[in-house]
Amino acid sequence: MAIHFFEEDIRSEIQQKRNLKNWIKKVAAGKSFRIGNINYIFCTDEYLLEINKAYLNHDTLTDIITFDQSERFGEIDADIYISAERIRENADILGKTYQEELRRVLIHGILHLCGHRDKSPAEKKSMREEEDKALNLFDSADVPRGTLKK
């Protein structure tokens, strides 16, 4: 049972890995899910675009694609592809730091795996609220502090 971070032709610049893993587990547990094995794969826009075309028939850039590999309800097993380039650009557009936007995208994938959707305007609003709640957990004292850089 583990959360892994991989890089495919790009540096993720991920920080506080231990804190992130604890936080992800805490958010999942709050939704009555347990973490099995999660692989976060950081990649380029081009790499993720090819995945988007091949598996989802979408010819658009995106920041995240989540593949649910779970075999048992309540346990999360997944491969989550994230464009580090999209994270950087979206952070600049939104006036956030790279790390802030990275956390939002990391947890966005987890929330999808816990059953949250974001297709309709109401679902998008609900997803954003759930992301904000989760982000507040990371910022709270409940997640052990410390910096574990790559």
Score class of each variant (00 low, 15 high):
F6P: 05
E7K: 07
E7T: 10
E8G: 08
E8F: 14
E8M: 10
E8C: 12
D9K: 11
R11T: 09
S12T: 10
E13N: 11
I14E: 05
K17S: 07
N22K: 15
I24D: 15
A28P: 12
A28C: 14
K31A: 06
R34T: 04
G36C: 13
I38P: 02
N39D: 06
N39F: 05
I41A: 00
I41F: 00
I41K: 00
F42Y: 10
C43M: 12
T44S: 11
D45G: 07
E46Q: 08
L49E: 05
L49H: 04
E50L: 01
E50P: 00
I51W: 08
N52Y: 11
A54L: 13
N57G: 12
H58N: 15
D59L: 10
L61N: 14
D63N: 08
T66V: 11
F67S: 03
F67E: 03
F67A: 04
D68P: 10
E71S: 09
R72I: 08
R72Q: 12
R72Y: 06
E75Q: 09
E75Y: 05
I76Q: 03
D77W: 15
D79L: 13
D79G: 13
I80N: 02
E85P: 09
I87K: 01
I87D: 01
R88K: 10
N90L: 14
A91S: 11
A91L: 07
A91P: 06
D92P: 06
T97N: 02
T97S: 15
E101R: 09
L102I: 01
R103I: 00
